[in-house]
Design a protein around this nucleic acid. Structure first.
Length: 285
DNA sequence: CGTAACTCCTGATGGC
DNA sequence: TGCCATCAGGAGTTAC
């Protein structure tokens, strides 16, 4: 799925196109994604106004003026597209949720694999999915104090974990929003092997990890999200920027950092917890 | 309790 | 061209 930068990009797109608009109609085209979708969505929100959109981890939250919030998760293959409404409109294959505004915009939620989630909760409560989530890796503005608190938090969490650092960073309870690609890239940048046991990571290395995570996420957000195979911006256009990955998907390719130092080392692919990890044995320890 | 394996689902890709 | 195996950005559940 889109990881944090892509979700953030989509959220911003939705905010630009839908903020303060009024819901004209919502349609569900099936009952379930990963979980059942509340049928109340179809009937309960005509004339509700969209106050704003926020992001928490990989979730997008649409806050309505009815004290309700719609929660979206895009799973592995989800996308959200917004475009002007056309009366000829017919929902496309794998479109499971459609929202039309009185102002004439149409939001389509499309998710072939249906690993995503659409749910509803009261705005003054916290959705169960959001309760135990780790801290956000980024704040709106650069903040050294926050960065330090993240380092301390991470170090505390890693201290008694026996699993590889790669697996721990993918756990949304530790830090919110990281996925397979950005973890691979951050560990490459930090010079830390994905195989390293979490409990033997030093505090200094935690700082390196947090710095790398923040740097890569910021870079990706500024680039408008990355353009993986089936990732689409919320306006429906293909991602217009492809980050030059250093490690992810680069199995068998020369490690850039080693090349600069005149060494010849290749990026290796291993499988951890059923997911591909890419790293350089020579410059990641 | 923590950890790893299994599970949901469709589509793209590559080898034969 | 078709068929089959493999892989994919996630994460909850189950089994140990």
């Amino acid at each position: 799925m889109p990881e944090l930068p892509e979700v953030e990009t989509i959220k911003r797109g939705l905010e630009n196109s839908l903020k303060n608009q009024t819901i004209h109609d919502i349609k569900l085209h099936r009952q379930n994604l990963r979980h059942p979708m509340p049928t109340l969505l179809e009937t309960g929100f005509v004339n509700a106004r969209i106050l704003n959109l926020t992001r928490r981890g990989k979730y997008i939250l649409m806050h309505l003026d009815t004290q309700s919030t719609i929660l979206f998760h895009l799973g592995m293959s989800g996308k959200i597209i917004v475009k002007p409404y056309d009366t000829q409109y017919q929902h496309q294959k794998h479109e499971h949720f459609t929202l039309i505004t009185k102002e004439g915009q149409i939001l389509s939620y499309i998710d072939p694999r249906r690993f995503g989630i659409i749910d509803l909760f009261e705005s003054d409560t916290l959705h169960p999915m959001l309760c135990d989530m780790g801290p956000e890796p980024l704040l709106e503005h650069e903040d050294v104090v926050y960065q330090q608190s993240l380092v301390t938090h991470l170090y505390t969490k890693l201290k008694d974990k026996k699993q590889p650092i790669k697996n721990t960073l993918l756990d949304q309870h530790i830090i919110a929003g990281l996925g397979n690609i950005y973890v691979c890239e951050a560990l490459f940048m930090a010079g830390i092997s994905p195989l390293r046991l979490s409990c033997i990571i030093t505090k200094k290395e935690c700082l390196k990890i947090i710095q790398s995570v923040q740097s890569i996420l910021l870079q990706a957000i500024q680039a408008g999200g990355s353009s993986m195979r089936d990732y689409v911006h919320s306006n429906g256009k293909k991602g217009y920027f492809q980050i030059q990955w250093q490690a992810y998907g680069k199995g068998g390719i020369l490690s850039q950092r080693c090349s600069i130092k005149g060494k010849k080392a290749f990026i290796k692919r291993v499988v951890q917890a059923g997911r591909s990890s890419f790293y350089c044995e020579t410059c990641q320890h």
